[in-house]
């Protein structure tokens, strides 16, 4: 931006995606929030806010299922454990959930693999369009990046969400999309290497079929662990403070240098 642009932007924001005309009305992405959007479900509003598009009932039911099926109220799951520690440390409800959600933007799970999984299916589809075979796409991906996000749990430990999700997708008729079928083809290919599809690949491919970009997908997923965190926070809060898996000094196992003087 030029200095002139910056000077102009000090006092004026043009082309905003929304505005609250207080005491009058609210507009989100060209629609009146209360007149035109007020009677639909919250999830539909969320994805409208993210994409500016409206989704049909089956698609929204699937998105709702994703949120429900990912709400694991288990304090051993890292972001949930943050909420539990927040509870045992007696911090506020909002700070607890914010902390848990913030750590969900992780490398080993959560938002980074989610985005990368969708990115793979979108790039794979483009390469297939250009004439590559699926085997070539997979082998190149593994050669370049060493991993295909969304595949990895050993076959004996199939992600428990996968069967429920596939069944529900079939009921909704959402199992015919291109990216999802690429995901299945990749699974069949990788099965020979002892790898199986996990829920991240299923979700990412179906949401790619609905036209989400990776950034839109991450925005949609950002709050997805929140319902599972709440019981973890409350459970820790109802116990004595500091009572969530306390650690004795001797269970802090030290492997550093020996004692020395400053």
């Amino acid at each position: 931006m030029s200095i002139e642009d910056l000077l102009a932007a000090q006092n004026r924001l043009e082309g905003a995606l929304g505005k609250a005309f207080l005491s009058e009305r609210v507009v989100m992405r060209g629609k009146d929030l209360h007149h035109e959007l007020g009677k639909q479900g919250w999830l539909g509003l969320l994805v409208y806010a993210i994409t500016g598009r409206e989704f049909d009932e089956k698609q929204l039911r699937f998105m709702n299922f994703m949120w429900v099926a990912t709400s694991y109220p288990d304090a051993s799951i890292w972001p949930n454990q943050v909420a539990s520690l927040a509870g045992t440390a007696r911090t506020t409800p909002s700070l607890s959930l914010v902390a848990g959600l913030a750590v969900s933007e992780a490398r080993l799970y959560g938002r980074k693999p989610d985005r990368r999984s969708m990115d793979f299916f979108q790039r794979a589809a483009a390469k297939l369009d250009q004439g590559a075979t699926l085997e070539q796409v997979i082998d190149e991906e593994i050669a370049e990046r060493k991993v295909i996000f969304g595949y990895g749990r050993p076959l004996a430990r199939l992600d428990e969400r996968v069967a429920h999700t596939l069944q529900f997708m079939a009921e909704l008729g959402l199992d015919q999309g291109r990216h999802f079928n690429i995901a299945l083809d990749v699974h069949r290919y990788l099965k020979g290497r002892g790898l199986s599809i996990n829920i991240a690949a299923v979700y990412a491919s179906v949401m790619a079929d609905m036209g989400f970009t990776t950034e839109e997908y991450q925005l949609f997923l950002t709050l997805i662990f929140s319902a599972g965190m709440v019981p973890c926070y409350l459970d820790a809060k109802r116990r004595p403070e500091g009572g969530f898996f306390p650690v004795a000094c001797e269970n802090l196992v030290y492997s550093g240098v020996g004692a020395r003087s400053w």
Partner: peptide, 17 residues
């Protein structure tokens, strides 16, 4: 209070209360 400085390009206008 930035409210008055925010302008929409896609505004359905007042639909009543």
């Amino acid at each position: 209070a930035y409210g008055p400085a925010i302008h929409l390009s896609d505004d359905p206008g007042a639909l009543g209360t």
